[in-house]
């Protein structure tokens, strides 16, 4: 079972790959759209890559609730527990 920091770190690598945001900028309190410039299409890419990486399902209806990196990390922790 991955720790919160391990999930954040892996998610940061995905955000870096998709949107070019430096890994160190992808912190729990950061908003995907407002702080990290991840647009709606890139967000889908992040979600699909995260599903693959963490072997979880993130339903389409849930994606709009994942406003911050912390929201996404918490969802992945719940889904994989």
């Amino acid at each position: 079972m991955a720790t919160t920091e391990e999930i954040r770190s892996s998610l940061a690598e995905i955000v870096n790959e998709v949107a070019g945001i430096p890994v160190s900028d992808v912190q729990l309190d950061k908003s995907f759209t407002d702080d990290l410039d991840v647009d709606s299409l890139s967000m889908v890419e992040v979600v699909v890559a995260a599903e693959e990486k963490f072997d979880v399902k993130i339903p389409d209806d849930e994606v709009k609730n994942l406003k911050t990196v912390g929201d996404a990390v918490a969802f992945i922790e719940r889904a994989s527990s």
Binding site: L41, S42, V44, E45, V48, E51
Partner: peptide, 10 residues
């Protein structure tokens, strides 16, 4: 279908 890119159409 889940792996089709959301950027495919644009």
């Amino acid at each position: 279908p889940r792996r089709v890119s959301p950027l495919a159409i644009p």
